[in-house]
Amino acid sequence: MATKTTSATMKVEEAGQMLGIGRNQAYEAVRRGEIPSLKIGGRILVPRRRLMALINGDVEEEADQL
Rank of each mutant, 00 (worst) to 15 (best):
R48Q: 01
P47C: 08
E34T: 02
L19V: 06
T9N: 06
D58W: 06
P47K: 10
R50N: 11
D64A: 15
T5D: 13
I35A: 03
Q25F: 00
Q17H: 09
E61F: 14
K11L: 07
T9S: 09
G22L: 08
D58Y: 08
R43T: 09
R50G: 07
G57K: 05
R32H: 01
M18A: 06
R32V: 02
R31N: 11
R31C: 04
E34D: 10
R23H: 01
L54N: 04
T3D: 15
T9C: 11
M52A: 13
P47Q: 09
R48F: 08
G16Q: 02
V59N: 10
K4R: 15
G20Y: 08
M1T: 13
I40H: 10
T3P: 10
G57D: 04
R48T: 09
E34Y: 06
G57H: 00
Q17E: 12
T3W: 14
G57P: 06
G20N: 03
R43Q: 12
I55H: 03
L51F: 04
E13D: 07
E60R: 13
R23D: 00
A8W: 11
D58M: 09
Q17R: 12
V59K: 13
N56F: 08
G22E: 07
V30G: 06
L45Y: 02
E62C: 08
K11W: 04
